[in-house]
Design a protein around this nucleic acid. Structure first.
Lengths: 237, 237
DNA sequence: GGCTGTCTGTGCGTTGACGCACATAGATGA
DNA sequence: TCATCTATGTGCGTCAACGCACAGACAGCC
């Protein structure tokens, strides 16, 4: 891959696409394109973060793992953002695991270089902070949704958030994995997915899901999805 | 109140206590001490934030209000932090309401002055970012807790988070208000509170609650409380 | 083809929380 | 003192989600 196509691919990530020409010129030599397989753990809870990730086609899920092994997703990151905000926020680590939810590509950059660029305080700095605020809204809305909404509604929200970050309508993911993300039973996902398939919104066979009708999903979701979407558009659109 | 006592009171807020002497000298003339009554709304969802707040004895709850009127807390702020991070993160607003959960004092400062001081990039900037990361952990853990834990456990967590930010062992708050914070039924809080009182961990009469046994509450809470506490200590301790 | 492992579907009893209705008890003020 | 309001306690039916067990169904592989 030559420099030109790398530059083109960086533009697939919304944060990298938004920086100034000067900044991009500085960042480009330090960005390494890597392909991530489904299930790959890129950060473990409490572990020092060596790299920051800017996904292009991959989707990364931020999970908290309980002591007893159960888990729940707190946020999802794709081409809209980055994984590793703790690096520039100053904490270096977070008590969360970051797992590849959908295989694909991402750029990675050394944590030290990330800090250096951030401290320069330019448009990159500005975008990182605004992105962090958008992520806070996503996490907040996950909290609210977990409290007040049904599994059916949450599955719709989750599918929409994933679809927004996906390069196609296909999502390679078993119901068992989805249940781990949402922190519910696998059977609960089976039931909800069946209903969505019966309604014609999605179709799936053995870990291969296709989104057929976004509007339908939007109707089945709670207001949480729209709140998050609107904040991303407002802050980064 | 003269300048000396104001300066002493600012030190009750952990963020203000952590800034450099130069920064504090710049901030002090712009900090206005106000007393906030229980239930006062200091920000409405989506509203432009005119001030940032640094509580000393007051506790502020960050809530999301659903379209149907039900609500859920996403985080709580006291002397450990500040309300209004959106001002320096760049978004200016958030889709949340900020309500006084426990009456008390807070310093407030004009949003413009906050932005100016933040952009200077000193220790204040550093502390604001680290605080934001701690708040993210709190919100994340709220999401996890909402998903996986019982009302009893969540009440313990909530009481502990409040107690950490309270100047005494007394919390003036009805069960009805607590239920709005946690996004559960009032009766659910009645049952949980009765159990805690029977165990001797708390006592209460008509909106006047006293925490008698912190260790007991810690035993009744899920791991979520400790995770949040540890992150605050690590990032800001 | 047949074996094996994984993914999805289904049934059933249990449970934690909900929604509603109403009872009791402390606080407030005329 | 009495009326009223608010806060808390309690009962009961309902329901969504859970935990468990197991039955297909499909894929990959020898």
């Amino acid at each position: 891959m030559n420099a030109l196509t790398t530059k083109e691919e960086t533009l697939q990530n919304h944060l990298l696409a938004g920086v100034s020409a000067d900044e991009l010129a500085r960042l480009l030599p330090n960005l390494q394109l890597v392909s991530l397989p489904l299930g790959k753990v890129i950060y473990e809870s409490g572990e020092k973060m060596d790299y920051v990730y800017f996904p292009t086609t991959a989707i990364i899920s931020l999970l908290y793992i309980m002591e007893n092994g159960s888990s729940a997703e707190i946020g999802v990151v794709g081409k809209d953002g980055m994984v590793g905000i703790a690096i520039f926020m100053g904490g270096d680590t977070t008590p969360n695991r970051a797992v590849v939810q959908s295989a694909g590509n991402t750029f990675k950059m050394k944590a030290e270089l990330m800090k250096d660029e951030f401290t320069l305080g330019g448009r990159f700095h500005y975008l990182c902070l605004r992105y962090t605020q958008a992520l806070i809204t996503q996490i907040s809305q996950t909290a609210v949704c977990n409290r007040l909404h049904s599994v059916d509604q949450q599955l719709c929200r989750w599918l929409l958030l994933s679809h927004d970050r996906l390069p196609s309508n296909r999502l390679i993911m078993t119901q068992d994995l989805i249940s781990n993300m949402l922190g519910v039973r696998r059977e609960g996902i089976t039931h909800a997915a069946k209903r969505l398939q019966a309604a014609g919104y999605i179709s799936y066979v053995r870990g291969d899901m296709t989104i057929l009708n976004r509007k339908g999903l939007e109707g089945g979701a709670c207001e949480c999805y729209q709140v998050v979407r609107a904040e991303y558009d407002r802050l980064l659109g």
